[in-house]
């Protein structure tokens, strides 16, 4: 269990500290040999780069990528602050 958590921590640091990624908003869950990534990023290139870098560093892990793209439509509602 400890090793599993250490791996999640190592991968989380890779996601933040690798200049090609620099994502703090992606969560990492490791179950058996499957790594599940969750969160939202600003472009498809960034999502693909995350999976590419993790695959390079951890070639034996199966990656499930649930990372979505942030939406950029204009809002339809206004919130009144009181």
């Amino acid at each position: 269990m400890t090793r599993q958590i250490d791996l999640e921590a190592d991968i989380h640091r890779l996601l933040v500290e690798d200049d090609r990624i620099a994502e703090q908003g992606v969560t990492v869950h490791h179950r058996e040999n499957v790594l599940v990534l969750d969160g939202e990023v600003e472009s498809a290139q960034r999502r693909d780069e995350i999976c590419r870098q993790i695959s390079e560093h951890y070639p034996d892990l199966e990656i499930v990528c649930d990372i979505g793209l942030t939406r950029t439509q204009a809002p339809a509602e206004v919130e009144e602050i009181s």
Binding site: G25, G39, E40, E42, T70, R71, T72, Q73, A74, P75, E77, V78, E79, E80, I81
Partner: peptide, 12 residues
């Protein structure tokens, strides 16, 4: 941005 899930929110 990932919280509001759109380009911007509007507050009055």
């Amino acid at each position: 941005h990932p919280v509001i899930k759109q380009a911007y929110n509007v507050y009055q």
